[in-house]
Write a protein that binds this DNA or RNA. Sequence first.
DNA 1: CTATCCTTCAAACGCCCGTTTGAGCGCGCG
DNA 2: CGCGCGCTCAAACGGGCGTTTGAAGGATAG
Lengths: 205, 205
Amino acid sequence: MNSPHFSTKQRILDSAEALFARHGFAGASLRQVTAAAKVNLAAVNYHFGSKENLINEVFRRRLDVLNSERLQALSAALAAPEVRLEDVLAAFIRPALAMAQDEHGGAGFVRVLARAYAEHNTQLRKFLHDNYSPTLKQFAAAFARLLPHLDKQELYWRLDIVSGALTYAMADFGLIKRRGTTPQQHQELAVQHLIKFAAAGLRAP
Amino acid sequence: MNSPHFSTKQRILDSAEALFARHGFAGASLRQVTAAAKVNLAAVNYHFGSKENLINEVFRRRLDVLNSERLQALSAALAAPEVRLEDVLAAFIRPALAMAQDEHGGAGFVRVLARAYAEHNTQLRKFLHDNYSPTLKQFAAAFARLLPHLDKQELYWRLDIVSGALTYAMADFGLIKRRGTTPQQHQELAVQHLIKFAAAGLRAP
DNA sequence: CTATCCTTCAAACGCCCGTTTGAGCGCGCG
DNA sequence: CGCGCGCTCAAACGGGCGTTTGAAGGATAG
């Protein structure tokens, strides 16, 4: 990571993501970030203007990718001859967990995301809402068609629960010990268990 | 809150909990904490020794209460003539959500808890594990008896998912808009939806 | 009343923070 | 060629940080 042939901006973003994940936005200093990125301290303010702006860029870089991967997977699921609930759930869950396990810092980003939720930072929440809401709406519409027995309120409650379990799994908060499994195997197990559990929960009368 | 007839220690704990929730452990300074608590700056180091120790005490104060409430509710559920899955789930879920909505700062504590999870602070995670694990084991045993079709691995995966959804609900991360409902009504709805969803997910083949 | 102990206080300690500055560098365009 | 521009650099700025100090307060026990 941070090998010298990457640009200064990218090295800063990578280091910032990792250090924000480990120590929080306030806990990770620009001096730590620039030292890890092997760039000059002033480079942050030169390229990003401020620490606050750097934080926003750390988010933006990842969220665009996640949204497009999810929507692409959703399209594929909806294009199948028979639309299965499990496939729509997979379109929602798998890209998120894949990013969480991604070798290039994705794991760190997810913790940054969880941390952003934990802070009640209004501006950041609005940013996240603005970026997630359209995607969530498309999924909600697909789920609504597959689960006609649920009214809108009921559906949103259940999708909220699914999001919660997913977020928790992404951040690897869980207590499950992964003995003798690779991270990839662990991720695939998490995907399968989440889909099975969520499908049953969503189908409940 | 922080009315002058409470002790200095208690006022510091209350203010620290609220400010840690809002700004993080690193983001909330002892000067902010002591100003909010209307005590002298040096009182923190006098009563708690260090900021690190103050953080630990913020946790300890709440976790003991939560654990005992959960175990008491579990005992009651297991003492009933017919042990129902939904009742055991309620014993796990309701005390947690009740604390999250508790008027005296509990909401803040839950965000502190979520934040502690987001940080991969090894020492803090160990502390939380040591304090939660015995309770979780008792619940796992109860669930195992009610769900004989699940092997141990499968059960732990599913309880992990339930914990995730519950944590998310506790921190009020959700996107559900609470129009025209009191926090108490919202909490009761969350409890009911979580129980229904989790029961279906746990019973899935 | 005095002595003791617990608590509070203002002030100061050295340290690290985010940001700014202005000089220096090197590449590519006119 | 040489000039300009994008970028990097070391250094410094004021300010907030966690912690320590030693004196002052105030209740209680002898």
